[in-house]
Design a protein around this nucleic acid. Structure first.
Lengths: 192, 192
DNA sequence: CCAGCATACATACACACTGTACGTAAAGGA
DNA sequence: TCCTTTACGTACAGTGTGTATGTATGCTGG
């Protein structure tokens, strides 16, 4: 049995993660077995269980990476935008929608995550990434302090559902434009 | 083995449904086995599989009933409210939040449903119940025709997340009030 | 330079759960 | 009264998870 150096081990873990991301996003958590992931990565289940505690932990790791990817895109867009709070909200929400609707993120983050890792954990992940920025943008847009968390949650939910809706439409480009316009209308609520 | 008449059979199916609703809402789909449901209902798995095609179908039936319950509450509230479109939206969204955050509906409808029965099917259920009313209210509030579907999805997502956020807070009554106020602010986007 | 230990897997196994096939007894019509 | 259908119960096969165990390799201290 050829063995792997520490560097190769990290590479194995990464290959498992990549396979998991692809399969999970295509078929969903319940339709992907650990063996499927292992085979796709060219290892056995033993390797997967060596690198990840269990199937849920593997899923959680994939979700965390994706969440970070999306957050990076959103932050980048906000930094390049007009610093006016309302413009920040618009730029950020558009970027979020675009980032999450192409690639593997959507199904994993928006469909499976709440059920698999639990809503609390999912929210915690979100809070570590995008949610903080959204909250800050809302604060600067003049949302009262005591409804800041509630408003953040609601706007986040609106954007998540916008993404799901968009991805489901036949003409995705058209749907994207419609979602953007609908978001803009929704965000007029936060024009101070 | 004592057998059951047709009337008793319907009652058995109902008992199974009741047990399923309770267990699923408390523990979630993946943590409840068909055998758990059967035992709670005082029958064997055979009875469950006689009345419902499989575990997902049983879940779907529970979800459909809950969805209808929530929709009824929302419609009732809207009918008793000021017929002004904006007031309809406010009354409806408040009623939705209150209805879904107490009882068994929340976890089943908002956490597990998308993953278990699929987002499309979940949306279809929603469309048969609450979504149509929401869409109509938005139209009457002056939302342009081509972004009506997108706006409906977004507002629905906002309300769903509001419910999840509310239920998660320590002081639920306080959270409910904050969610109501945050929703009111959000709905100012649809003041014509 | 080699003995011993930790690492990185592979293999084998126990357990749980799902769905299905089959058995059976009562209900209800012909 | 017979015969079919309904309403279950029971037994079984298959799949998937997690864990225990085996094993070979890299690495480190003496």
């Amino acid at each position: 049995m050829p063995r792997a150096s520490a560097a190769d081990a990290a590479q194995t873990a990464q290959r498992i993660l990549d396979s998991a991301k692809e399969l999970l996003s295509a078929r969903g958590f319940s339709e992907v077995s650990v063996d499927d992931v292992a085979r796709d990565a060219g290892v056995t289940r033993g390797a997967v269980y060596h690198h990840y505690r269990n199937k849920v932990a593997l899923f959680g790791e994939v979700a965390a990476r994706l969440q970070a990817d999306v957050a990076r895109a959103v932050v980048a867009a906000a930094e390049n935008a007009d610093p006016q709070p309302h413009e920040q909200l618009k730029a950020g929400s558009h970027a979020f929608l675009d980032a999450i609707t192409n690639g593997a993120a959507m199904r994993i983050l928006l469909i499976d995550s709440p059920a698999v890792i639990g809503w609390q954990e999912w929210r915690r992940l979100d809070a570590e990434n995008s949610a903080t920025h959204l909250r800050e943008a809302l604060r600067e847009a003049g949302v009262a302090e005591d409804i800041l968390d509630a408003s953040t949650a609601q706007l986040s939910g609106a954007m998540n559902e916008a993404a799901l809706w968009t991805a489901q439409q036949n003409d995705i480009d058209l749907a994207r434009r419609q979602s953007h316009r609908a978001l803009d209308r929704l965000l007029t609520a936060y024009v101070s």
